[in-house]
Design a protein around this nucleic acid. Structure first.
Lengths: 193, 193
DNA sequence: CATATATTAGAATGTTGATTCTATTATGTC
DNA sequence: GACATAATAGAATCAACATTCTAATATATG
């Protein structure tokens, strides 16, 4: 019952994502999102409790897109595959990459995340920590702070650094980044301390 | 002539820097800066043409603080010293580091930089490019795109990544980051391609 | 001491954008 | 066909801030 919808949640999330990627999160005003689709602002609020909730959806989508493949590689025990996932994913998902790597969660949605989203984010973070720990233990024989730090550096921080400069310029990372990431990975994750 | 000043430019810049480091650039409202010092908002505008100009001063100060030592090390030909400058500087300058590494120029001051500041920034950027090029040429025998990419990665991007995680948590980077940076530097800057 | 002026003081203005509110319009159900 | 309601429409509110404006105050200079 009720009239047919002209729009759907996905459209609003997609549009918010597109604007955030192109012009930064501050440009994602309710009017801009609605205007882009040709919807009235009221329709945004009909579907999302607030701007924060809309942005939290954007974040959730982007983070999940990245982390699912990343964790899969890691849980398989392929550290170098996990590390190389970053440049690959970035090439395939330019807009999402800009959001994930250029802004922090709090810049997208300042306060009040819906409980469900907080739990989702917490779950992802737990899974990430566990994956890293297990991998460190498997690689080094134990997973103390030292081993975890090295692992995080090699498979998260360095790939991020390798790719960031290109994302800022709106370019796809060149092939050389794989080489840099791999060399660093080998140097850091070598068994010999 | 005229009455004595109760405040001075430095105070406003310091306060803006402190607030930006602690609560992010968005928290740097004119009222917040003035209020923190006990000055009227009018006094801010008496000294700075606009919020953007004030923030540009903050940025200029922070950038210069970092880059002077960095470039000195680089121009001496000490690549590894330049790379290690990042964690050292970060430990000594927590607030400045948060601003320099957590936000981009445009987040501090969106539009309209005063001409003088633009030139200063441009000069710094030129000097940086030249320093990197020279260093790459000295290290690899030539400074093509490939050699420059490697150099930038090893002495800028990786140190940044090594330190970022701790800055976000408001902690000082542990000693291990020097080890990671050094290992990476050796792996990447090895003469053998 | 009178004047010019640098500076403080802080109220008034204007804009931008989130959010709320009040219709209006279709569509399924009875 | 009348009713309930999901959804669209978009005007009206509200709040936060940057910026502007109009005093009020000291102080140096003559």
């Amino acid at each position: 019952m009720g009239r047919n919808a002209h729009f759907n949640n996905e459209q609003f999330i997609d549009t918010a994502l597109k604007i955030a990627a192109g012009q930064g999160p501050a440009a994602v005003t309710i009017a801009a999102v609605a205007g882009d689709i040709g919807a009235p602002v009221g329709s945004v609020y009909h579907r999302f409790l607030s701007r924060d909730v809309l942005m939290a959806e954007v974040w959730g989508r982007v983070a999940a897109s990245f982390q699912d493949e990343f964790l899969t590689a890691l849980e398989k025990g392929e550290g170098i595959e996990a590390a190389l996932h970053t440049p690959r994913w970035v090439r395939q998902h330019s807009a999402e990459a800009r959001i994930l790597l250029l802004y922090r969660r709090e810049e997208l949605a300042a306060g009040s995340w819906p409980e469900e989203m907080k739990e989702r984010a917490f779950g992802i973070s737990l899974r990430l920590d566990a994956g890293i720990s297990e991998f460190a233990a498997r690689t080094f024989g134990k997973a103390g702070r030292e081993e975890i730090n090295r692992t995080v550096f090699a498979i998260i921080d360095v790939p991020y650094a390798a790719v960031l400069r290109y994302i800022r310029q709106g370019k796809k990372p060149p092939r050389a980044v794989e080489d840099h990431i791999t060399k660093t990975y080998n140097a850091i994750m070598r068994r010999t301390k």
